[in-house]
Amino acid sequence: MSAQPIPGRVTAAAEGDVVVFLIGMRINRWRAVRHWMPAFLAMPRMLKELSRDENSGLLGHRLLSGGPRDFGVVQYWESREKLLAYAADRSKEHHPAWAAFNRRARGSEGKVGIWHETYVVPAGSYESIYSGMPEHGLGKAYGVEPVARRGERAAERLASAGSRAHEAGA
């Protein structure tokens, strides 16, 4: 069952800084299954673990596909500190998956590639709009509110977010 579109125009109800983490993999050699399959299977385990823990800091995620070889995930995090804490926690799924990948990578000769990018977007430097969409992306991670609360145009929403950050002493 798919989510129902939200009537009207809405924007993400995010306040303050937003942490966006992009992570993915590329299968460079299909026959090298033992090199790419463990990385491919590790991400769903990590997302499940994070989603079960309300204090993990993961606010939401969305799977991406860049074609038959490229897979990725956009993740929205409560803070940079919680993202880094998860990555460093030896008792969580990430640490053993990362260690195993590094061991296999030594002899993989580029059979699988991985990447990640982390963005800490300051308050006042992001805006969003959703029209005829179910909750999506930043709006799904933070919830949505009517566009009119933050401005009808992107420039107004950015200015509104900047003034809210300034008022808060950011």
Results as ranks from 00 to 15, higher is better:
residue 57 G to F: 13
residue 70 D to K: 04
residue 77 W to K: 09
residue 79 S to I: 07
residue 34 R to F: 12
residue 31 R to T: 04
residue 78 E to T: 08
residue 75 Q to A: 04
residue 72 G to H: 13
residue 43 M to S: 04
residue 61 H to M: 03
residue 70 D to F: 10
residue 38 P to H: 06
residue 66 G to K: 10
residue 65 S to K: 09
residue 52 R to D: 09
residue 68 P to S: 10
residue 25 M to F: 02
residue 52 R to P: 00
residue 37 M to P: 00
residue 35 H to L: 13
residue 68 P to M: 13
residue 69 R to T: 07
residue 78 E to Q: 15
residue 73 V to L: 11
residue 52 R to C: 01
residue 73 V to R: 05
residue 68 P to T: 14
residue 42 A to M: 04
residue 74 V to E: 15
residue 39 A to D: 12
residue 60 G to A: 09
residue 79 S to L: 04
residue 34 R to M: 08
residue 24 G to R: 03
residue 21 F to T: 01
residue 36 W to K: 11
residue 71 F to A: 11
residue 63 L to N: 01
residue 36 W to N: 10
residue 51 S to V: 04
residue 49 E to H: 05
residue 30 W to A: 12
residue 28 N to L: 01
residue 33 V to F: 15
residue 79 S to Y: 09
residue 33 V to M: 08
residue 58 L to Y: 13
residue 78 E to Y: 07
residue 56 S to H: 12
residue 32 A to C: 01
residue 51 S to M: 05
residue 59 L to R: 15
residue 73 V to P: 00
residue 62 R to G: 05
residue 35 H to G: 03
residue 33 V to A: 13
residue 68 P to F: 06
residue 72 G to K: 07
residue 47 L to E: 05
residue 59 L to V: 10
residue 54 E to L: 02
residue 79 S to D: 04
residue 35 H to T: 09
residue 24 G to T: 07
residue 62 R to V: 02
residue 38 P to F: 02
residue 52 R to F: 02
residue 54 E to P: 07
residue 30 W to Y: 06
residue 41 L to R: 15
residue 27 I to E: 02
residue 41 L to W: 10
residue 21 F to G: 00
residue 40 F to V: 00
residue 41 L to S: 11
residue 57 G to P: 01
residue 51 S to K: 13
residue 45 R to N: 10
residue 61 H to V: 02
residue 62 R to W: 06
residue 67 G to W: 13
residue 46 M to V: 12
residue 76 Y to R: 04
residue 21 F to N: 03
residue 35 H to K: 09
residue 74 V to R: 08
residue 59 L to D: 09
residue 30 W to C: 00
residue 56 S to V: 08
residue 51 S to H: 09
residue 23 I to L: 13
residue 63 L to H: 11
residue 75 Q to Y: 06
residue 57 G to H: 11
residue 55 N to M: 07
residue 69 R to V: 03
residue 34 R to S: 14
residue 63 L to R: 04
residue 65 S to P: 00
residue 75 Q to D: 00
residue 45 R to C: 07
residue 40 F to R: 12
residue 74 V to K: 03
residue 69 R to A: 07
residue 35 H to D: 15
residue 73 V to G: 01
residue 26 R to I: 11
residue 36 W to M: 10
residue 21 F to Y: 10
residue 53 D to I: 09
residue 47 L to Y: 01
residue 70 D to M: 05
residue 68 P to A: 09
